[in-house]
Amino acid sequence: MPRHLLNPMDFSVEELDKLMDLAGDIERNPDKYAHACDRKILATCFYEPSTRTRLSFESAMYHLGGHVLGFSSANSSSAAKGESVSDTIRMIGCYADICAMRHPKEGAPLVASEKAEIPVINAGDGGHQHPTQTLTDLLTIRSTKGHLDHQTIGLCGDLKFGRTVHSLIEALSRYEGMHFVLISPPELRVPEYITDLLKEKNIPFEEVISLDEAMPQLDILYMTRVQRERFFNEEDYIRMKDFYILNNDKMALAKEDMIVMHPLPRVNEIALEVDSDPRALYFKQAQYGMYIRMALILTLLEVEV
């Protein structure tokens, strides 16, 4: 049976360490891996539009010497004719060695994995999971801070609907000495199941509104976008969208070695002036996204280099 990645918690802490070690080696020695996936094919089955994730997967496979085929919207696939996910993955399995799937319906990659004879990677399923973003975030923290444990991390913005935030908190809750500062307007606080998880594990956390007050203690600041599509009411969205804007004045309150992360795309929650601050890591984070996807493809295909 092939191994899949459907949920960020599918990998143990030890397996994640191994994966991140491999990603680090790929970053340092890209030539060593340039032909690791010669003659292998990645299928990118994207039932909804995505720029960053799809390009990151495709770039990852090309950097490994492999090939890519696929579709980038449901309209350009047989889903438009009513084909089920189960049938599509069976067909894809005849053409490709591994599949990255994004689908607006939650659980679609799990359905695919139950029928697939090739590894399936969840590249985002609705508001449910986006495990490769979590792996990207973990690699970014480990590569820049040197370790994942003993960090004070501030998560700021839409903590209610942001799936990347939920997955990252769950993933980091497995490491020792973590302290979470949850910065959001009252309307966009993290769901109860997340705070329940932190309480259950006795992990210290605080829910605050002021970003300025939180800044001085943070080792990591994870900014998120307030997503228009999550609001039923345009007025609520407009009221919330500019609630937090990170600028140089706020950065002046932070530690010298604090890092700023963002899953991208940003709208206006980070002012452009922050981009030139060496602590702004969000574009480098996108690069780590490619390295971790390369490591993931190699691991799931069981390719040894």
Partner: peptide, 13 residues
């Protein structure tokens, strides 16, 4: 009952 769940569209799941 989640309208965003794959069970809402996938045949015979």
């Amino acid at each position: 009952k989640n309208p965003r769940c794959i069970t809402s569209i996938e045949q015979e799941l």
